[in-house]
Nucleic acid binder design. Structure first.
Lengths: 343, 343
DNA sequence: TTGTATGCGTTATCAA
DNA sequence: TTGATAACGCATACAA
């Protein structure tokens, strides 16, 4: 059922102004190619009629949309939101509009969203992480839609990406943790299937253990979805096991904050009884009590750089160069030395 | 510069399959109007070619996009993100796609985004709050694009909305606070210009004061932008003034958490020295320490109901009915009785 | 500076 | 069940 009244078109404006549609079009797109008098006249009529160009028609005729799509796992927490906000702001400066879609960490939905954004005429796409069905990359190829991977920088990867080295970042943190005497380590991780970032973080910790003479197989590993509640549950399980770890890494700050809450409820002191380490450094991390030791990810910088790279590519064809940004360890209050009095 | 290889079109598929474009179109949109043999054949070719329909062309021909736009102040914190996620999930169930845009709380950007989404062919719009330039409502009217207001339910408003009564919710909370003996109240608010929700919350507290025999003019009022840092700064100013309040309301949880952090830094005990009250009940609120007393807003329910109303309106023309949801007071740890030993 | 005419990729109407 | 063909609203090459 269509309730639409007649929406004014270029044609209507042209008729009302007594000029051709081409002239009206030019008034909008190349104002200086039009005499001032007619331009003023046309603009007035445009305002009177409340005319606004039809995007679909415009896209079809111009074969470009000035739109860049971003597909992220979730908008529900700040992990991606901040980078995205920066991405959008920068894009706007370059005359592009951002379209967002979220996938709930589900590969099928991601594929659906990618197709949807491509069909909508996105000139390019921002993607999180490298790992996805090769079929998708092939699809993008045949559609001629460039895709930029962010949130990860994997040395030796085929596809250029703008991000940080997840493995190296957590390796560095794990090394510090081990230096503090921790030998019983655990990791509460996002599901690693189709998530190269989660995998890299897992491997990074194991690498650090190996290099420090610890057995990587001793790392207690729990995979879970990404909520505060999930972090709390996983942490509880860990604390009730008979091989209770003294340091718990969390795949992100949201999980870490859940763990922290659980510790408080269980009257387990952090960091005296157990250390908790997050990842991302979102607002939650500084607000949590005790304030969370975590890995700072340069979200905004990542979004900004990605926007610039994509905008230049679409506008000028400038090839996209991979950029490695540095993650930074942030030591706050949830990491302390390992207790010596425990068995 | 266009790097696009030739993207397969309906025409290409038709040629390859040896049928007309009409038949291919039917295979996609009305599969049962097509014989099984040709359908299978066509589908195969579609897959081979990696064909995907052009959204703009489709929208133009079908005069519908199955797209609903949502325009929110910001994605940076969880205030709107959660409701939006629910909105999107429900929309998806009804076969619609969501387009988001954010305004950074700026009316001009909001107007720009509204026009952009309308031009993109959004079948309907989700808006936050009632208050905006009447010109915009007129524009939507002439474009025939229905808009649903959420995050607010204002009795007697012209436009139907799905939300809660901001004034009543905070009135209820303020009444409880006053019952605890607080007489020196303050409010750290979002900027109230063009923000009916912020205004309503301001008025709600003043109403409660009046009804309790307090002078509403004694409410200390600070307007600020919406960040943790802003909350901290405003709180510090309040604490350093000579009419130091014993209870500080915050326009949202983000500001409240900033206030909380500032209190910790200033060694001011919450709630012994000062009570802090938030609004929204986002994740931050339960994670903060002490856990934040706040007003719980039914974000997800709001998003879901809005999606259903809009989907039914666009599909069946079902008129949109206003829905009032209930906000709920959540008493945690940051609210306590007023100290008697202070001057 | 302005106008004419054509194409963009679909859907939908009408015949066959 | 299928095929021509006319919209849909705009940009643009070309002509005036």
């Amino acid at each position: 059922m269509s309730l639409k009244p007649h929406t004014p078109t270029l044609h209507d404006v042209a008729a009302a102004a007594g000029v051709s549609t081409a002239t009206v079009s030019r008034c909008l797109n190349f104002p200086d190619q039009v005499s001032e008098s007619t331009r003023i006249n046309v603009i007035c009529i445009i305002n009177d009629l409340g005319y606004s160009p039809n995007f679909g028609a415009k896209a079809m005729a111009a074969r470009r949309t000035n739109t860049i799509g971003a597909i992220i796992p979730t908008m529900e927490n700040a992990i991606f939101a901040r980078g995205l906000q920066a991405f959008q702001e920068e894009l706007r400066l370059h005359g592009f509009t951002m379209l967002v879609a979220s996938t709930s960490y589900c590969p099928n939905i991601e594929e659906e969203q990618i197709r949807s954004l491509v069909a909508r005429g996105a000139d390019a796409l921002l993607l999180i992480g490298h790992e996805r069905d090769p079929e998708i990359y092939r699809f993008l190829q045949t559609q001629g839609v460039p895709a930029l991977v962010t949130w990860a920088f994997t040395p030796g990867s085929v596809r250029p990406s703008i991000g940080f080295n997840n493995r190296a970042a957590i390796y560095e943190m794990a090394t510090e943790v081990i230096k503090l005497g921790h030998t019983k380590l655990a990791l509460i991780s996002a599901e690693t299937a189709m998530n190269d970032r989660a995998k890299a973080r897992h491997v990074g910790i194991q690498n650090a253990m190996t290099d420090a003479g610890l057995k990587p197989s001793s790392l207690q590993f729990i995979e879970t979805t990404y909520n505060i509640e999930d972090g709390a549950n996983a942490f509880e399980k860990l604390m009730k096991s008979d091989t209770r770890p003294t340091a718990v890494f969390c795949g992100n700050d949201v999980l870490a904050v859940g763990a922290l809450r659980c510790a408080r409820e269980m009257k387990i002191s952090v960091p005296d009884d157990v250390s908790i380490i997050g990842f991302d450094d979102i607002e939650l991390a500084q607000v949590a009590y005790p304030a969370l030791t975590t890995v700072h990810v340069p979200h905004r910088e990542m979004g900004r750089r990605a926007a610039i790279a994509l905008a230049n590519y679409v506008k000028e064809g400038t090839p996209i160069k991979a950029v490695e940004l540095k993650a930074r360890l942030v030591f706050r209050e949830t990491l302390g030395p390992a207790r010596k009095d425990l068995p």
